[in-house]
Amino acid sequence: MPELKGWKELPIGGIIVEPGNAKQYKTGTWRVLRPVYQPENCIHCMQCWLYCPDQAIVVEIVDGKPKMKGYNYYYCKGCGLCANVCPRSIDPKTKQPAPEEKRAIIMRPETDFAEE
């Protein structure tokens, strides 16, 4: 939390003049489940990136193509939507949930990750 400013220091009218400054605000503390990225299974289809409501998917351009690079846990609230929309979460043959080792994203309890 920044130090609270007095009325003389604030812009008038409650107007916020710093666009998108919510980026300073950490929502990662909300997380109960943590998405864990397994790059070896990823096909870089960008579905996770497209759907993430918190823009927590890190993407870089490699050879002109977007590549999933993992998570920005500062923002990730752990909703699991990324894993849900990930095509690798489903076994293409059986149409059943794929075994964990085949998935690109798996959800783990936050308690598994003590201090980082």
């Binding site: 919510a22 300073q24 929502t27 997380r31 409501p53 927590a56 500062y74 699991g80």
Partner: peptide, 10 residues
């Protein structure tokens, strides 16, 4: 931007 406070998964 991120840092908004909508429910997870909204």
């Amino acid at each position: 931007t991120p840092g908004h406070r909508m429910c997870p998964g909204c």
